[in-house]
């Protein structure tokens, strides 16, 4: 479980995150949604310690991340898996070597066991036939899957994904979403996913947080997203024609139901 308390981040006097408080539960996919530039990536980077917040607290299972010594931070990081927006696979290593890398650096197991673990992770993401290829030789969707495999290699407790399906076709995007959802449930992880894709939200979002210009505007479950009366959230959700039509269709069905009841 991750608890965020009154998180504030300023860049040269500009508020990018304004007093964010929230809780991310274990075994749930927590989704942060919002327009481009609303501070989602900055928030995620604060969570994982790549950006230092101006003030506030981030509690990882009741331990304050921001007041930890560097040794404790290093310890905690063994339990974090991160999927970066551009996958961030190491160019000079093959897919298998990429997944083995965290094991090579931190696991005490011997080479054969490490390789077996890496192959297991790659199998989990359906990438067993690409293990000897280099990142430049595989597609964007495969890169994401390889990056997921690398992120889960050390059995993390926390998984962070920044726009996991940006730049992918809808079908592949859905596969990646489902993969993230399944491994969250399988390994009982605390997963935080940043996205601006409403499809993902409806697919996998257990807990949805809506950011608007650095402020946590709304917080709820995915079934509540469609029926909220928050103006900014509605503008975001129904920006896509498809969701507008779904809502209209819902209303028509509801009306007809009412008529029939009468």
């Amino acid at each position: 479980m991750i608890v965020v308390k009154n998180l504030i981040k300023e860049f040269e006097g500009r508020m990018v995150l304004d007093d964010i408080s929230t809780t991310f539960d274990r075994g749930a996919v927590n989704m942060i949604i919002g327009k481009s530039g609303s501070g989602k990536t900055v928030f995620l980077k604060c969570l994982i310690g790549l950006i230092k917040p101006s003030s506030g607290a981030i509690l990882y299972d009741n331990e304050n991340f921001l007041s930890m010594k560097s040794k404790e931070v290093k310890q905690l990081r063994r339990y974090m898996g991160v999927l970066f927006q551009g996958s961030a696979l190491f160019d000079s290593k093959t897919v298998l070597e990429n997944v083995m890398f965290p094991l090579d650096m931190f696991s005490r197991k011997n080479k054969r066991e490490r390789q077996k673990r890496a192959e297991f992770c790659l199998e989990r993401v359906n990438l067993s036939d690409a293990i000897d290829l280099y990142p430049s030789e595989i597609s964007g969707g495969m890169m994401k899957r390889a990056a997921i495999a690398r992120a889960i290699a050390l059995n993390p407790k926390y998984l962070f994904c920044d726009e996991p399906n940006s730049g992918l076709d809808p079908k592949t995007a859905q596969l990646i979403d489902e993969l993230i959802y399944d491994i969250t449930k399988d390994f009982n992880m605390t997963t935080v996913v940043v996205s601006h894709d409403m499809n993902s939200v409806m697919n996998i979002g257990d807990h949805v947080i809506f950011f608007n210009e650095g402020i946590k505007e709304w917080d709820g479950t995915k079934s509540e997203v469609m029926n909220s009366d928050n103006q900014a959230l509605n503008d975001f959700v129904f920006a896509s024609d498809l969701f507008k039509k779904i809502k209209e269709a819902d209303e028509i069905i509801a009306e007809k139901e009412e008529e029939r009841v009468k």
Binding site: L50, Q75, R77, R78, F84, G86, A88, D91, M105, F106
Partner: peptide, 17 residues
């Protein structure tokens, strides 16, 4: 520099390397 802008350096840091 390329590793930096493609977040590979961040990926290392985040692993605790």
């Amino acid at each position: 520099g390329t590793m930096r802008i493609t977040e590979q350096v961040d990926a290392l840091d985040i692993m605790g390397v």
